[in-house]
Write a protein that binds this DNA or RNA. Sequence first.
DNA 1: TATGAATGAGTCTTCATTCAT
DNA 2: AATGAATGAAGACTCATTCAT
Lengths: 197, 197, 197, 197
Amino acid sequence: MLNRRGEETRQLIKKSSCALFAEKGFKQVTMKDICERTKLSRGGLYCHYSSTQEIFHDILDDFMNHQEDTISEKIAQNIPAVNILNDILETYRQEMMDSPSSLSLAILEYFSLRNLSDTENELFQQYQMSLKSWKNLIRYGIERGEFHHVDVEAVFHLIIFAYQGVRMYSKLMPIKEDIPTGVVEQIKKILIKKNQL
Amino acid sequence: MLNRRGEETRQLIKKSSCALFAEKGFKQVTMKDICERTKLSRGGLYCHYSSTQEIFHDILDDFMNHQEDTISEKIAQNIPAVNILNDILETYRQEMMDSPSSLSLAILEYFSLRNLSDTENELFQQYQMSLKSWKNLIRYGIERGEFHHVDVEAVFHLIIFAYQGVRMYSKLMPIKEDIPTGVVEQIKKILIKKNQL
Amino acid sequence: MLNRRGEETRQLIKKSSCALFAEKGFKQVTMKDICERTKLSRGGLYCHYSSTQEIFHDILDDFMNHQEDTISEKIAQNIPAVNILNDILETYRQEMMDSPSSLSLAILEYFSLRNLSDTENELFQQYQMSLKSWKNLIRYGIERGEFHHVDVEAVFHLIIFAYQGVRMYSKLMPIKEDIPTGVVEQIKKILIKKNQL
Amino acid sequence: MLNRRGEETRQLIKKSSCALFAEKGFKQVTMKDICERTKLSRGGLYCHYSSTQEIFHDILDDFMNHQEDTISEKIAQNIPAVNILNDILETYRQEMMDSPSSLSLAILEYFSLRNLSDTENELFQQYQMSLKSWKNLIRYGIERGEFHHVDVEAVFHLIIFAYQGVRMYSKLMPIKEDIPTGVVEQIKKILIKKNQL
DNA sequence: TATGAATGAGTCTTCATTCAT
DNA sequence: AATGAATGAAGACTCATTCAT
């Protein structure tokens, strides 16, 4: 019965839904669930969004737009590649351990409901952005003599899919701290020359 | 002695459902879908299974029971670790590329619907069996001087989650041959000593 | 909870719906109404029909298939045209006065919801069948010297649309006996030669 | 003095709604549709009308009030009955062919939603006004020796219901020019004495 | 075992309507 | 007067599940 400004309500819906998606995945969340969580009426919710897909899309959009390419910035600042790598991997490690707030399952479900064939899907775009950043970083590390002469793309794929794999399984299986830590350490070993450690 | 007719029907149900799960994931598949695919009536299906969970469980069971520990066997036969590894990785590579028949998405959804807290879930058991086999293999390789002295568990995790990560994403994104190949090559580099290649 | 044979239930649905359509027109009748009238559950109804359109279509089909061309039969029997005409017009008169059981409003609404452009709609087919029968009759009457030399199609249109007009308005306005009677008498005067009356 | 702004909006609403009613009939048009067509907000529309019934009623009212009894005027001017008749029938003919702008379906639906029992409904009033005018005309024609000695009411009913019947069906079926023309010609034949043609 | 009719709960979706601004 | 957010009720539709045959 409140009469908020529209954008406020949209934010509320996104926030509440995001929590629900993280808890239950994508398909388990119904418009009804979101009504209950937001305390909005059926019709009230439909004023702003007409499906969970639409809400999820908006949430993803927000994520994407808030992601800046910090790697490139740091490279521009001439920060040592090892330091940049360590920072990223520490973030990854944290994320692999923070299962409850992870949308990875929901993302997977969301995209599995759509026609994957189109190369234009957001997931693929994300992947490509990520690929670009990592390529820059690895090449930068190699140029600076901090990293081994590795197959850049192959190493990227190993990193990114191991990371995604852990995130996914953390929703389904008890993942203790040692797994993310071990994975991160292995990645460092692959990339960083011994004298830099 | 099993009732032949009944067992046949169960096989039919499992086969049809398996295809459906691979196509659509777990939650998208309804008892109704399965009725249609198997050409069984509602009641007919319920004679054998009373939920998709039950069917999926049975399918997983079949998979598990058909998986023998070929690694241990090969080790017992004193086959070179590098050969064993190459075989396994080739299988993995094939699987990473065979997206359509992959149940990975369905598995994920299936387990995400249950109470993950229980360490006794089948996924975890699978994980542990896999861990045991790989540990044996890696140690065997190290003992024989074929593999580097690596952190056994950490390398296992890197391998297994990268593999699972690729399988998962192959359902959602175009995964070309080079990704599985690159990932497999990286794993080989981590494990196998140069003089063995 | 009864477990009738399917066709029985379909008959029940058609009968109940038909009454509802006659009472309320087409769009006023909801699947829910039909559930209540038939004492079927939501799902039970949907087993047989998935929309009111489908039910109405079936009802119309039944009507069409039960309509035989009695006019042609009578002509074949060499019955006097005046007698045939009198019979038909008496039926029309009765129908114009039996507003409660008339589906005319429902028919109108039903067809107005569809794409009228297609000449293949059932209403048009009905019209054409009717046209054919009347043409035969009028020509037969003229040949036998019982009817005036009229413009066959024009007279048909006058008859049929006046009849339909009355039926329609009988749903909306009090139509006393004199209107149908008067209309029928006028038609007779147009067609029948004085010496035949 | 009416609030100019307000009256303008009401006119806009009536005009837009009228188009919608002609397109879709009465029940298919929702307050939401009208909001969209008029570009008014929900609340804005409700400032003026609180239901589609109210709007439709107003539209009908306007129609009724704009209808003057031109027949009586012409009779007063001693214009030949045949001329008057020809004018009216030409108007009817035009209207029977102008299906898109016809409200007949909407009118039917509108009145079918109300309690038909009341003899006081607007439709009936319309009918009575029309009856009165036509009676005058036909009697006038008879008196002047231009028209046959017909049963005035019966002929009126034949005319008016055939006209309404065609208008109605023109919404549902392809009605070519020959139908209205034929109907009009028949009516002339019934009324007009041969020597007047 | 197997059929398929029937139930009923859950969810989606659309609107008429109200109300703070 | 006008806006548009919010409510809530009505109706549609889909399934898991049961049951008489």
